[in-house]
Structure formats: C-alpha cells, structure tokens
Design a protein around this nucleic acid. Structure first.
Length: 189
DNA sequence: CTTCCAGCCTTTT
DNA sequence: AAAAGGCTGGAAG
C-alpha cells in the first residue's frame, strides 16, 4: 500500500509522547460489518455497523487520540476467532484483551464476562453485585468498546426486556437468539 | 399506559 | 466545579 503521508497532528500538544497506533481489520458477519482493533496489548475494540465509514467513525470517536491503521492480514487470526465465536457462541475465545476504562467500568466488564452464554442478567442484579445502581451499570455497558467479547448483550431490563443496545437492539436480539439456540434449550415461557 | 424522578458514573463546558 | 445524559427502575398520575 502507499504509505500515506501521515501529517503530524498539529494538535500534538498533548505531548504525552505516545501517539498510539491501533491496527484494525474489517469483515462482513451475520450482523453486518464487524471491526476489530488491537493495540500492543491486545484487542481493544470490537464494533458492529453497516458501513465502513460508520465503523471507522466510531473507532475514531472512541479513541480520539489514536492513529488507526488497517492491518487486515495481521489481525486475521483474531478476526477468524471472533467470527467463529459469532457462529458458535459456545466456542469461547481467549484473545488478549486490552480493556481501558475507569475502575468501575472494568469491574462491570469483568462481571459481564462471567455471564455464561445463553444466560441473561438484569441490570439491577448486576448492580447489586457490584454495590452500585442499575443506571451506572447501563452507562458502563454503553461505553463498552468490545461487543461480543464483553457480553453486554446478555444484560436485560428488569422484566427481561431488551431495553437497549448501543449497536441496535436488533443485534442484541440476534446474539441472544444464536446463543439460546446453541444451548439447545427450547425456551418456552 | 404515560410521565416523572431518584440515584450513580462519565463526559463536557 | 457544574450540568447533562445514559443499554434503568419503580412510583405516580
């Protein structure tokens, strides 16, 4: 590829000195388009969207001061792993994650990862476990950069209604449907 | 059923 | 420092 002349951001005034480079890859998936992004430490984003521009926009807005570089081949292994998990939720992916956020957010995200596939938990329940409030948990879920791997889609409203999802309630429903089908439990009410 | 508000965390001005 | 807002929840109108 042409090496794009990457103009030094004039606003490099934040001389924290570490203009971080994020590599990303994009692939179609049953839910539309999927993007994963990785830092040196591991996977730091997994987003859904319908268009590439939308994906990139969200990535950029989540990591405003990061330089994003497409690396389709370098991330192919991880990408395949994620896609495999999408098709078969029982297949747990053990990719290195690079989760950034406040202490509270990390606690919420870890709690989310403890929810087994096909099972749901209420915001209130989760909040009680963390000694916090439902609204705060919802806020943390909303800012979760790693869809699927941090299963914020397994959190539902008090009456188990799919109240909301950053990437669309449709996708939330689809993910849950796939998982419950997988668990073979024909859930009849 | 619709509206309102409380309580908690982040982000932005 | 202050205010607004978010994937809520529960009480009130």
């Amino acid at each position: 590829m042409l090496d794009p002349v990457r103009p030094r951001p004039a606003d490099a005034r934040k001389r924290k000195g570490t203009p971080e480079v994020l590599r990303y890859a994009i692939s179609p998936c049953p839910l539309g388009l999927l993007l994963i992004a990785a830092s040196e430490h591991g996977l730091c984003a997994l987003l859904f969207a319908n268009d590439e521009p939308a994906l990139l926009e969200e990535l950029q807005s989540r990591f405003p001061s990061a330089v994003t570089v497409r690396d389709q081949t370098g991330l192919d292994d991880w990408l395949q792993a994620v896609l495999a998990q999408l098709e078969d939720p029982s297949r747990s992916t053990d990719l290195p994650l690079d989760l950034r956020g406040s202490a509270f957010q990390q606690r919420v995200w870890q709690a989310l990862q403890a929810i087994p596939p096909g099972q749901t938990m209420r915001y209130g329940e989760l909040a009680a476990n963390l000694g916090s409030h439902a609204r705060a948990v919802a806020r943390a879920c909303a800012s979760n950069p790693l869809g699927l791997l941090v299963p914020c889609h397994r959190v539902v409203g008090a009456d188990q209604a799919l109240t909301g999802y950053r990437w669309g309630v449709e996708r939330k429903a689809a993910l849950l449907a796939a998982e419950s089908r997988q668990s073979g439990a024909s859930q009849r009410s």
